[in-house]
């Protein structure tokens, strides 16, 4: 039988890294639940925001921090800022979610349900990396290749083209080399890809 979570004192807990990087002290959260009450997607989350905060508060038990990193929540968060706006403790939860996403990516603990969302983000940034701007059509095709949702929204494209919203040729900025360097030193460097 499982003995339940075990305390580990010898590692820097996630909450401390969050405090360092964002100034958000999870210990200040007193679990009032106002963030979860106002979150537009709380009902879709595996752990609504107040529970994410509690998982981090109990960060001495690494299993709990792990649950936060593996959660669907961190990818569902829309950064709509309503939780931060209403938090009585003025905790910047959206900013904290950013750090959880970075940690989740770095530790390869991505929730399988978040695959589509991340594919979309990657497709978006790939477009920006190569052209400097978002090339909507290119991005959508890229996303479809990554996600496998080939048929979804297929009927939107002709309409968009028809009303003049869809360009077939990407706009490119002049200093695309700088953009490449910026990506190389940030996202790509962290993900260990060229």
């Amino acid at each position: 039988m499982s003995r339940g979570p075990v305390i580990q004192h010898d590692r820097q807990v996630l909450a401390e890294r969050i405090l360092e990087q964002t100034g958000v002290d999870v210990a200040r959260c007193y679990q009032c639940g106002k963030c979860s009450a106002g979150c537009p997607l709380a009902a879709d989350m595996d752990f609504p925001p107040s529970q994410i905060m509690h998982l981090l508060q109990l960060g001495d038990f690494p299993e709990f921090a792990e649950l936060a990193l593996r959660s669907h929540t961190i990818w569902l968060c829309l950064t709509c800022e309503i939780c931060y706006c209403r938090c009585p403790m003025e905790l910047d939860i959206p900013k904290l979610m950013d750090v959880l996403r970075y940690e989740s990516l770095a530790q390869k603990k991505i929730n399988p349900k978040a695959k589509d969302i991340i594919s979309f983000h990657r497709a978006f940034l790939d477009s920006v990396r190569t052209t400097g701007r978002l090339f909507e059509m290119g991005q959508v095709i890229d996303y479809k290749l990554r996600s496998g949702h080939f048929l979804q929204d297929l009927l939107q494209a002709p309409w968009m083209f028809f009303v003049g919203k869809l360009h077939l040729i990407p706009e490119r900025i002049r200093d695309r080399r700088l953009l490449k360097r910026m990506f190389a030193r940030t996202l790509k460097a962290r993900e260990g890809r060229p």
Partner: peptide, 25 residues
Amino acid sequence: PDWNCCGATAAHNLDRDLALALPAR
């Protein structure tokens, strides 16, 4: 002149420095 994409949600979801660098440029 020669503006670039701000990175939108995608950048700040995946990389903090990139999410700041794109708008900073």
